[in-house]
Design a protein around this nucleic acid. Sequence first.
DNA 1: CTCAATAAAGAACGGTCATTCGGTTTTTCG
DNA 2: CGAAAAACCGAATGACCGTTCTTTATTGAG
Lengths: 214, 214
Amino acid sequence: MAPRLVKNGHSFYVPVMPKVTEEHRAARRAQIVAAARRCVIEQGFHKTTMAEVIRESGLSAGAVYGYFKSKEQIVEAIAEEALSTVDELFGKLLASEEPLSPLAALEAALNHVVSIAERPGGDVTRVAIQAWSEALRNPAIMTIAQGKYAQVRGRFEDVARRGQADGTVDPSVDPRHIAQALFGIVPGFLLQRLIMGDVAPGTYTAGLRALLRS
Amino acid sequence: MAPRLVKNGHSFYVPVMPKVTEEHRAARRAQIVAAARRCVIEQGFHKTTMAEVIRESGLSAGAVYGYFKSKEQIVEAIAEEALSTVDELFGKLLASEEPLSPLAALEAALNHVVSIAERPGGDVTRVAIQAWSEALRNPAIMTIAQGKYAQVRGRFEDVARRGQADGTVDPSVDPRHIAQALFGIVPGFLLQRLIMGDVAPGTYTAGLRALLRS
DNA sequence: CTCAATAAAGAACGGTCATTCGGTTTTTCG
DNA sequence: CGAAAAACCGAATGACCGTTCTTTATTGAG
């Protein structure tokens, strides 16, 4: 519902804004996204039909299409949401504990994955996996994924640099490569959690630590 | 085309086998799978239409449906193929080099990922990511994924046990957890390779090794 | 070579689904 | 309160797509 140009009493064309409050529109939008998220978690992006999203949202087709131009836009909104959740952690994490070892940051990240997976509103990590898949053929989602994950890797890079300054991490290795390795552990954990269902942050990092001695 | 029971000249019902050789049928099947794989790599499971697979295979609708009962069966065949490729490596790897450290096995696995990604016939790792996504809502693919990945993890577990026997790996840690951690590094590498496009096995494992000192 | 049965072909069908659009309700503002 | 515009509704639409089915070609046996 883009503002349209209409003639006012002074014979000027002015933009006409929505009649409802911006909060109302935001709430409706969130309502649609939440409904769509539930559908996507159960059925995936492609098997989810607009009819289901519409029913689940409690709105009508016309209303939903007043907020999103197409199904693809809803999918993008959900994908972005899912791809953003990993980074949430770092705001709190990096601010608080001053001496933060890379492995401690990683364990915090894995714990964060579990906590967002168990959040009410549905396991968003399921959406993340679908977003990876979708990114391969949807340039918009690919761009979102690249941006979000570059950001997370930047966070890990900071942690690596800090470790090198502390002397706890080999300073001769490019911190970007350390960040790649650190970040890359998260998808493997997340995937095994959903497919195999037998991993836990504590034992996972323990297994990792045992390796470092080889 | 299952063999049917027909009455022969001796009044017995016997199975009637296809008129063409079994090799011919296998070749045709492979032809269809290869065509479908190309389509799926470009467009994904869901955006790939049977019309495209049919055109790409050079066959007709009737012919294709003589080899696969449905699109879903083709998808399953491709997913299984993609989920199997990671394990290919271990047959050669575990047989040859006797002293095999876990990190060496991992680096070999990452190199293997790159080599299968560059194989002619298309980057199968793209299909693997889609298979993960699909497994979340398709029980058949979920079962395949669980089986294949349990197998790969079993291989890594053997390697971990060997390392513990050698004294190069902490023997107090459950080798299953070490296997989880080792295996879990592969998806993260594969994902970053496709999404970020800036990882390489050598520097990746170097980044990992730098961590182990913290 | 002839016959019978399989294999392949491809046009047609039926169902599904995203989206639209004309009508109705609700909201805001003078 | 009354008018005008936005917000909402939901049945209708038209494109797309997996699958089938009838017809034709090919194969191998006798």
